[in-house]
C-alpha cells in the first residue's frame, strides 16, 4: 500500500537537504510540516527538498511548501526543490507552483544556487 513517506536529513555545504521518499498527501503532510518547522526554528533557512524519490504529492504537500516559503524568504532563506519526477512535476504545473520555486535537476545544482546567493524566483 502506498502509505509510506520518509524524510532523510543531510547537509550540503551550508544547506540542509530533506530527501522526501514516498507519498506526500494529507496523511503524511504533517510529518513534512514538522520537519520544515524544526529546521526553520533552528535557523536553518537554506533548505533543499530532494524529490528524487517522491512518488506523489497532493495539495496538502504543496501547502506545506507554501506555508513556510514566505517566512523563510523574509529571513533571507529559501526552499529549493530538486530532482522532481515528471509525473510529480505535473502537479506543481497544474497550480502554477513551478513559477514560485526554484526547481533544479539535482541537489548539487540547488546547493550551487545557494552558494551563488541567487534566487531565480520570488
Amino acid at each position: 500500500m502506498s502509505t509510506n513517506f520518509r524524510i532523510e536529513r543531510s547537509e550540503l555545504g551550508g544547506a540542509v537537504v530533506l530527501a522526501l521518499d514516498g507519498f506526500l498527501d494529507a496523511h503524511t503532510a504533517p510529518q513534512f510540516e514538522n520537519a520544515i518547522s524544526s529546521e526553520a526554528e533552528a535557523g536553518h533557512l537554506h533548505l533543499i527538498a530532494d524529490c528524487r524519490k517522491l512518488s506523489y504529492i497532493s495539495s496538502a504537500g504543496l501547502g506545506v511548501f507554501m506555508s513556510f516559503i514566505e517566512e523563510i524568504r523574509e529571513k533571507g532563506g529559501d526552499i529549493k526543490l530538486s530532482g522532481i519526477e515528471p509525473k510529480v512535476y505535473q502537479v506543481f504545473e497544474v497550480l502554477g507552483f513551478h513559477e514560485l520555486f526554484d526547481i533544479v535537476d539535482n541537489v548539487e545544482a540547488a546547493g550551487a544556487l545557494f552558494d551563488q546567493g541567487s534566487r531565480r524566483k520570488d
Binding site: D25, A26, Y56, S58, S59, A60, P86, K87, Q90
Partner: peptide
C-alpha cells in the same frame, strides 16, 4: 495512460481529503 491515471488519483484524493 500513466500520467492521466495519476491526475485521476489526485482529483479523487483531493475530494476525499
Amino acid at each position: 495512460d500513466e500520467k492521466d491515471v495519476m491526475r485521476l488519483q489526485l482529483a479523487v484524493d483531493e475530494a476525499c481529503a
